[in-house]
Design a protein around this nucleic acid. Structure first.
Lengths: 129, 129
DNA sequence: TCCTAGTATAAGTTCCAACTTATATTAGGA
DNA sequence: TCCTAATATAAGTTGGAACTTATACTAGGA
């Protein structure tokens, strides 16, 4: 429940081209909301509140992380949220895929755990999946 | 680029819960449009034309295949279209992921080619975008 | 040939989500 | 304390997409 988001919410969020573009941007690295608003706003011709609202949707879908620093908010891609999307897609893996999918899942899980373990607890207490 | 669709079109299509449900259904195996209409229509309380329109969107996004047989149209999940979605997600793979992702891609390509080679040419000439 | 089954398309309605402008919130500097 | 910067929220509009019903299309079968 405290989970960042379901596959449903994630796909709903990614159904919008502006939000996909935001994800691509954040995939390159963390950025403060203002920078996102500048870049995305310019690219799509939309206002700061519009971008802020998109960020909210992504937040609620568990697709981005936020870290406050002073009055700034740094957004980043949330790999756990994206993993939920990947997981949904895995049901379509080629017919005899079973073993490979299991391997992929295992590897992904291992990486996630390693990544979480590498970071201070304070940065983790967001999703609390 | 006889490819069925872009990642943009695919994500737009998957942004709708009814269409995601249709994909899940087709992921279990081919089904005639009527069966899809019955099952999805019942589940969501929508009409046959509504389901037909959803199937059209999925078709145009390259996410489903169609095979005519008499007056029936058998729909199935298009693994190539879904691969485009997977590919988009790969840009977010964990930092040091490179090698694994390359492996996954290679495996997927091999399987796709094998699958196509197993079928008569007439059933393949669909996309032709 | 006509009828029926299976499916797609046409045309119109309705509702929601993506925008807008305006304002609230919050943190820090002068 | 007040001002400003950075961001989020409030409130209202509007275009488009997801429906609806009605109808067209197409392939067989009687």
């Amino acid at each position: 429940m405290s989970d960042g988001g379901s596959a449903e919410a994630a796909f709903d969020a990614l159904g919008d081209p502006v939000r996909r573009r935001i994800m691509e941007l954040l995939g390159e690295g963390e950025r403060p909301a203002g920078a996102v608003a500048d870049i995305i706003g310019a690219a799509f011709g939309i206002s700061q509140p519009a971008v802020s609202q998109h960020l909210k949707v992504l937040r609620e879908a568990g697709l981005v992380t936020v870290r406050a620093e002073g009055t700034r908010r740094f957004y980043g891609a949330d790999l756990d949220g994206l993993a939920v999307v990947r997981a949904w897609l895995e049901r379509f893996a080629d017919g005899f895929a079973g073993p490979l999918d299991a391997l992929e899942t295992e590897l992904a899980r291992g990486k996630r755990e390693r990544r979480l373990a590498d970071r201070p607890a304070r940065e983790r207490r967001r999703g609390a999946a």
